[in-house]
């Protein structure tokens, strides 16, 4: 799966979890929390939606790897292999 597709998957989940967030200009390297005012409840939901939709388990110690879009793409890439 391409990086752009993974990026879109993450953005789609964020738009569900935080529908008021402005996703038109998200920068890849800046922590999502800073750009989008996401809190711990939102992060829990991102993790839960990844599990629900793609059966990806993100253990608590890996939560920091979801900090920015770039780190999400790097972390989720291998796990999303096999999804169309």
């Amino acid at each position: 799966m391409g990086e752009q597709r993974i990026r879109q998957i993450v953005l789609d989940i964020i738009s569900l979890v935080a529908p008021d967030a402005d996703l038109s200009n998200v920068r890849d390297e800046v922590p999502l929390r800073e750009q989008l005012e996401l809190d711990s409840m939102d992060f829990l939901d991102i993790v839960m939606e990844l599990r629900k939709r793609y059966r990806i388990e993100v253990p608590k110690e890996d939560y920091p790897k979801l900090a920015s879009l770039a780190s999400c793409v790097a972390y989720l890439g291998p796990q999303l292999q096999g999804h169309a």
Partner: peptide, 12 residues
């Protein structure tokens, strides 16, 4: 207005 209980509960 974000980060208030109402939008939070709606998104949850």
């Amino acid at each position: 207005r974000k980060q208030a209980p109402l939008p939070k509960l709606l998104s949850q």
